[in-house]
Design a protein around this nucleic acid. Sequence first.
DNA 1: CTTGACATCGAACGGATGTTCGTGTATCAT
DNA 2: ATGATACACGAACATCCGTTCGATGTCAAG
Lengths: 231, 231
Amino acid sequence: MMARKKVGLGERHKKILRFLEKFHSENGYPPSIREIGENTSISSTSVVNYYLNQLEEMHYIERESNVSRGIRLVRNLEGQLLKAAQTVTEMFTVPVIGRIVAGEPVPVPSSDFNYYDQETGIDIARSLLPPKEKTEDLFALEVQGDSMIDAMVNDGDIVIMRPITQANNGEMVAVWLADRDETTLKYFYLENGRVRLQPANPLMSPIIIDDPAYVQVQGKVVLVIRRLEES
Amino acid sequence: MMARKKVGLGERHKKILRFLEKFHSENGYPPSIREIGENTSISSTSVVNYYLNQLEEMHYIERESNVSRGIRLVRNLEGQLLKAAQTVTEMFTVPVIGRIVAGEPVPVPSSDFNYYDQETGIDIARSLLPPKEKTEDLFALEVQGDSMIDAMVNDGDIVIMRPITQANNGEMVAVWLADRDETTLKYFYLENGRVRLQPANPLMSPIIIDDPAYVQVQGKVVLVIRRLEES
DNA sequence: CTTGACATCGAACGGATGTTCGTGTATCAT
DNA sequence: ATGATACACGAACATCCGTTCGATGTCAAG
């Protein structure tokens, strides 16, 4: 109230910015000018307008004239550029549908699996995957037991997979070995009619399967997440 | 137009959803009903209203009555939950500041490290970490080489860490072993004045260090990410 | 002292916006 | 055939909303 010189971001500017951020965060759309005023103790819409104009000049927001709630957040209080729009599509939830255990086939979801009903999911930033990788049919499994160390995955790790039945060479896949009653995660290579399953652990030897019929590809591994326990 | 039975997401629903997503993405605020109509070839605001009500019943959107542009996107076309608001705060970028190599100390950022200047970062969903885990000082390192298999991390894995100099028992830490000129990732236990460094790999034996002065704790591991290459 | 810049206010206005209502057409089941 | 339901339309209305205007107060500089 005593700041007479224009010195940049004043307290009222900050207060409005914080409110803009919070409101959009909670509601999915920007506040109106009256809502801004009510929540920042400004009684007149023209004063709110005045400050919004200044925030626009300082490139914290962008406004559309004569558009209700036409306010776009550009920077946050610390001046960081906000990718508000893009962020919406840059994270997704992968349903955790079960466990991956050495002695059982992978529980691959059926084609009519309802991806929205899962109660447990794991949030993944889209940028962790290649741009072309589709996300809709990904599923997550929790590793159970110590039997997957050749794949360098540990008890409790989360393995995110895509259901496939045909593998390309070099892909890390989950296969069910019918003659051994065993699930294993390995790099898949089809060479001269035989299958080579290469462990991720460089100290371990590959498995060679003469008859590919014994190798049931169940899914392709796209991501492994290990969370360390909070102690 | 011929579909008289109510069958769920119809073409018009999809068209509107796509437009909602695109418009919000580009403008930072939702479209008005007339804008929706103009862009989906619907000539009447009441028809737009009709479809928006249906999309709300199907939980793709949420609406606020009598609020201009009071539309919140809840799910996208594929049905994935959008955390439009929360996503802004539920994802963050961890700077990748270097590599973790067995023969060198961990490059821990200094206290005046500028976290915003890093060009390489890795996006992490906030939910992958415990709620109390602060995110501001986390840094990421890329594993180089095959020398960390006792920690079950592989060449190319991303290890996300917090700088600490004192470890609690049971924490997965990066330590610099001064007598061996070696960095290693292990579970830390201080027992009767001696340090036990337990490998994550259950087939491997612990290291016992009699003099804790030789154990320089450099950081605590909070998350490991393995991305499988697209082939 | 005056002047200009900045900040604050409320009232008023006109346009933006959402909602309701009634009508018409098509489809389906009985 | 009838009745019920779903979808599509335009008109009308009331409220929401942004903008403008004029007035007032404070401060700093000349």
